[in-house]
Design a binder for these strands. Sequence first.
DNA 1: TCGTCCGGTATGGTCTGACCATACTGTGGT
DNA 2: ACCACAGTATGGTCAGACCATACCGGACGA
Lengths: 240, 240
Amino acid sequence: MAAKETPLTDRPAKKTRTFEDVLAQIERRIVEDGLTVGARLPAERQLAEQLGVGRSSVREAMRVLETLGVVSSQVGRGPDAGAILTSRPDTALTDLLRLHLGLASLELREVIDTRLMIERWAADRAAAARADTSGLAAALAAMGTAGSAEEFVEHDTAFHCALADASGNRLIAAIMRSLRDSMRRYAVEAVERLGDTSLLQADHRRILAAVDAGDPGAASRAVTDHLAHAYPSLFPAADG
Amino acid sequence: MAAKETPLTDRPAKKTRTFEDVLAQIERRIVEDGLTVGARLPAERQLAEQLGVGRSSVREAMRVLETLGVVSSQVGRGPDAGAILTSRPDTALTDLLRLHLGLASLELREVIDTRLMIERWAADRAAAARADTSGLAAALAAMGTAGSAEEFVEHDTAFHCALADASGNRLIAAIMRSLRDSMRRYAVEAVERLGDTSLLQADHRRILAAVDAGDPGAASRAVTDHLAHAYPSLFPAADG
DNA sequence: TCGTCCGGTATGGTCTGACCATACTGTGGT
DNA sequence: ACCACAGTATGGTCAGACCATACCGGACGA
């Protein structure tokens, strides 16, 4: 027997941690078995036994997959328990932005400014392209029936994401989605502070109308006004 | 019957997993202690004891932080061992965006449009605020002495990041930095395709001059022209 | 027959303690 | 000065245990 039977490539040592190996095995399994969203991975103990590793290694791999937005773990028993394949590729980006928001201790002003930049751009583009606005209309309708601030914000988020989608730029849409998810808390606070959502809903209708009319300038102005209404403290008391 | 020996602080709310708690504690610590890149977190065993949790929970938190690109673990002993803060989440953001760029099969058009949106905004803001431009000037000077496309792109990136920094919005600066890092390859290609960098350098001078002059409109126009020069194929052959 | 209750059980979540491989640290000998 | 070697702190991994949760299914009563 020659030496220590190095792998095909004579790499002297490839320090792969066990959980990385598990990670690869799971990914391979997902691909080979054609698992799709909603599918359930084997239980941690099962996987550990099948792969010949400790459960802790499997768990660390799960944490990574969870962080990457690939799976979601549920305790208990039954079809909904265990590691379920999720379809949230943006989750990771969201988490990262949230982390960023926290670590860099950004001010609300910076976040809102960023939103303003993105949404004005998106509204402008969507209007210029006379994009399909069915998604916007649907979210707008749902907003009208919202019973709580949380529910309202949910549809509000859907509206703004739909606007970003309508811009036709997927990268910007992804950033928008992450940003909205990260600042959901602030949005709820803003809605609760206002108490009444009729003004916000009117803003949304105005945005939708401007996009439908193919008027970029009006669309981005409507977006600006909307954010000013939602976060009045950040805007220099525009004239009445 | 006094329930089942509730923990000292009988808190029924326990929906967050322990490792998430650890995650928050570590993040808090990083922020409060002002830890920067290269700093070393306490050892896993130490953290576990300090936080009153098991080492496995600490490890799961570490896996998440590692996945997010916040820390990097090294075995052994000494100053380089343990969990080291690798980079502020900026580069993790970069990785994710790169992942997005790859997985979502984004078109260059979408990426450049995003840059255009961000840089026009940043230039406008920097000019309006008559921001400090020493960083821009330094990068500009360095560009003049670049000997290769790679080197030029490096200073070019520094220039554009400095512009984003000058806007005063850290979130946008972070996004800009990530975007630039992610598309470095395209930038090098663009420079090599042009062959000559004098036009690009002139663009940069024009941007700097506009910001110094406090002319937002001229600044964002200069940025637009610059990107049009670098990626002519994406712009509808503007008049001569 | 229907509904309720209750124990069985599978699952993720967590802790403990142990052992290994690694790589620096310090000490002592040359 | 230099080198060799034991000491030790660190992450990596495993095994086993216990908990809380939530579903499953049979027993029991109305």
